Deep mutational scan, measured.
Amino acid sequence: PEDLERKVRELQKNGVSPEQIEKILRRDGVDEREVQELVKKVS
């Protein structure tokens, strides 16, 4: 979803590592495939 992507970009802009971003997304209940997609987009 659009807002998730925005969140991921925000986190990355704040210097959060892709690994941390993955953890955060998983903790928020984002589905694994979605997590991978989002992280791939920003890394």
Rank of each mutant, 00 (worst) to 15 (best):
V35G: 02
Q12H: 15
E22L: 07
L11C: 04
G15P: 00
E32Q: 07
K13A: 12
L25C: 07
K41N: 10
Q36K: 12
N14D: 09
D28Q: 14
L4W: 11
E37S: 05
G15T: 01
V8A: 04
R33T: 12
E34A: 13
S43G: 09
Q20Y: 05
L4D: 01
G15A: 03
P18G: 06
R6P: 02
R26L: 15
G15K: 03
R9E: 05
K41P: 06
E10H: 08
I24R: 04
V30I: 12
K13L: 10
V39L: 14
P1G: 12
L4Q: 04
Q20A: 10
V42M: 09
R6M: 12
L11N: 01
V8I: 12
E32F: 08
Q12W: 15
E37V: 02
K7Y: 10
K40D: 12
V16T: 08
L25R: 02
K41E: 07
Q12P: 01
Q36I: 11
V35K: 02
K23D: 15
V8F: 05
S17E: 05
E19L: 03
K41F: 03
Q12S: 13
L25V: 04
E5G: 06
E19T: 08
Q36F: 00
V16Y: 15
K41M: 14
D3T: 11
L11T: 00
K7M: 11
L25N: 01
V8K: 01
V35I: 15
L38P: 02
D28F: 10
E2S: 14
E34L: 15
E37M: 03
I24D: 04
K23G: 12
G15I: 00
E34T: 15
V42N: 05
L38K: 03
D28P: 05
D3V: 09
D31C: 07
K41Y: 01
P18F: 14
Q36P: 04
R9P: 00
E22Q: 02
V16N: 09
K13V: 06
Q20H: 08
E19M: 03
E10C: 14
G29Q: 03
S17R: 08
Q20G: 09
Q36W: 00
V30N: 05
R6D: 09
R26K: 11
R33I: 10
